[in-house]
Amino acid sequence: MKLQDSVIAITGGGQGLGRAMAEYFAAKGASLALIDLMPEKLDEAVTACKVAGGDARSYVCNVAREPDVEETFTAIQRDFGKINGLINNAGILRDGMLVKVKEGEIVKRMSLSEWQSVIDVNLTGVFLCGREAATHMIQNGDHGAIINIASISRAGNMGQSNYSSAKAGVATLVPVWAKELARHGIRVMGIAPGFIETEMTQSMKPEALERMTASIPLKRMGKPDEIAFTAAFIFENDYLSGRIIEVDGALRL
């Protein structure tokens, strides 16, 4: 699959990794359907994609709501006439211990809302968007690819019961969908990033960032363009399907 003239939908496309991937693909001549909840961020990302050389349109959508997702992908199909690729990138964090104890006393427990909100966006959102993208691809006869953005946290990370569980589910959907959709000419892959330089990590305290970086064998965090390059490699290699590529500087060996 060539990125030139392809239509790629990206959830969480208004900022962070989503925007970085969008700009990278735009520079290669792709058209982008950017999906996010924040209109102002979407507007900035659309402008950046057009400056980079590709067409782009924005879609305000809550990926955890089925009607929103159905309407959004119908609109993408109407606007572009096809869908060649999807990157399931949207995600949120609500970190916390399952049960936090201080001086022998339980001071906090992860709430059901903290659990459910992460599952809704990070896992259910992937299911809904993947289903809608695959539906339109099959109906159109558009061969293409779906990329699920997982995380090395899928192996289990302290303080992330909700996030680790969701990302484990996201990763598991990769081989399931790859087997189910191969007959329709649709490939499915996953990317599991480690620590990447984004707005979220830049807001961390310097000492926390220093400790984090020291734990990475390559002694640096990844750059958003390195995730974008990996996604482009997946899209352009038509024999890749059903696997997760970890981009983590050898953090998880």
Rank of each mutant, 00 (worst) to 15 (best):
M212A: 12
G249V: 00
L42M: 09
G190I: 03
D55Y: 15
N122D: 09
D238V: 13
E197W: 00
P175F: 11
D36E: 10
A20R: 02
L253W: 01
L93M: 13
G91Y: 01
G54K: 12
L112F: 14
K167I: 08
I138T: 13
G54T: 07
A33T: 12
R187A: 04
L240Y: 02
V69L: 01
L86A: 05
I76G: 05
L173P: 00
L3I: 07
M97P: 09
P175C: 11
G185P: 08
R220K: 14
P67A: 10
W115G: 04
L98T: 05
T74K: 15
S164D: 06
A133C: 09
L98K: 00
R183Q: 09
E23D: 07
A9W: 09
E132P: 07
D5G: 04
E66R: 15
T74L: 11
G194M: 01
A182Y: 11
S215I: 02
G29D: 14
G190P: 02
V7E: 08
H143W: 14
F80M: 03
R252V: 15
Q202F: 10
K219R: 14
R57L: 15
G125N: 03
R243K: 10
A22T: 13
I10M: 01
R131F: 03
E40Q: 15
G29W: 09
V121Y: 00
M212F: 03
I119A: 01
R57G: 07
R211Q: 10
V118C: 06
A9V: 04
T11Q: 02
T172D: 12
I149A: 06
T230N: 06
I227L: 15
A48T: 15
S241W: 01
S165L: 15
M200R: 15
G169D: 03
V174T: 11
A27Q: 13
M200I: 10
E23K: 11
G91E: 00
T72H: 00
M212D: 11
V118E: 12
M21F: 01
I35E: 04
D120N: 13
F195A: 12
G29R: 10
G242L: 08
A9Q: 05
F233V: 12
I196Y: 02
G185V: 00
R65Y: 12
I76M: 04
V188G: 14
Y163L: 03
G141Q: 02
D248N: 04
R220Y: 01
G144A: 08
G54P: 04
P206M: 05
L123G: 05
Q4Y: 14
D248V: 02
P206G: 02
R220C: 09
M212C: 11
E71Q: 15
G29N: 11
A231T: 09
A231W: 02
M110Y: 01
D225G: 04
E40V: 05
Q77M: 10
G185E: 01
I234F: 12
